[in-house]
Design a protein around this nucleic acid. Structure first.
Lengths: 131, 131
DNA sequence: TTAATTACAGACAAAAGAGTCCGAAATATG
DNA sequence: CATATTTCGGACTCTTTTGTCTGTAATTAA
């Protein structure tokens, strides 16, 4: 999404191009982007001159949105020990303390937009490739 | 370890008893406790009247120690996006921001002792069973 | 010294996650 | 209309994690 935010050209960007730029396999990236499209973060278009594009302006998409789309919102309520029944009514010994830090993290990702990260990525270097 | 910290009786506690109290299978808990023993957090003794016991006073064992023993210290330096090459010299767009929160979490677990959690577990209820 | 009890070590099985591949549906272009 | 291009959906494989089992060594107590 940062690549899309930094991309100046109008229209859709093919996943194959994205995959090459970001250093992921085409098939793998396709799977990830499908969940983003399903979540409404991306618009897609089939056929020639098709591809994906940001569905909203980059400053209207937060990291929280992306995490929610890819991993689900449950990561923001899970017990740090992994106990399935841990909750307010049946808290593990770390429940309250972890909940505080977890909400700090959630605040961070809710505040952080793709646009801001795209600006930083510009400062950091030409690529944020994985491999 | 919280159970051991709250246990008044002298001597070793058999893993089988611990497993029953905490609601984990004996074999599974055995495997976990072995890594804790190897890390020096627990002392163990074979044979009748054997079992495990805290190797140090509960207020001298931090949650960090336990995490380090069970999961390894790498969790405190890993990239939040999972990028293998992310680091100070090759940072991902979230690197710096995540590093700040990650160190906050590390501070929390370095500050938190088993003794403190044992006190809280007392307030919370009779058991911190998983199932 | 024998039998019971216990942790230890490693092999094994199951489940989850990460990643790959293939065919189908849609669409732009000539 | 035909063809090339592109996403979509699901099935599949591979790897990692999680959890189980089996036997062995150590230790205690009678």
């Amino acid at each position: 999404m940062i690549y899309l935010a930094r991309n100046e050209r109008p229209g859709y960007v093919p996943i194959r191009e994205l995959a090459h730029e970001v250093g992921l396999s085409f098939h793998f990236l396709t799977k990830i982007l499908q969940s983003m499209t399903a979540a409404g973060l991306l618009e897609s278009h089939k056929g020639p001159r098709g591809g994906v594009a940001l569905a909203r302006e980059a400053d209207a998409v937060t990291v929280y949105d992306v995490i929610a789309a890819v991993d689900g919102v449950s990561v923001f309520s899970e017990c740090i020990l992994g106990l399935p029944d841990c909750g307010s009514d049946h808290p593990c010994p770390l429940h309250d303390r972890w909940a505080q830090h977890r909400s700090k993290i959630e605040e961070m990702v809710r505040r952080e937009t793709i646009a801001a990260l795209a600006r930083d990525a510009g400062r950091l270097g030409p690529s944020f490739r994985a491999g």
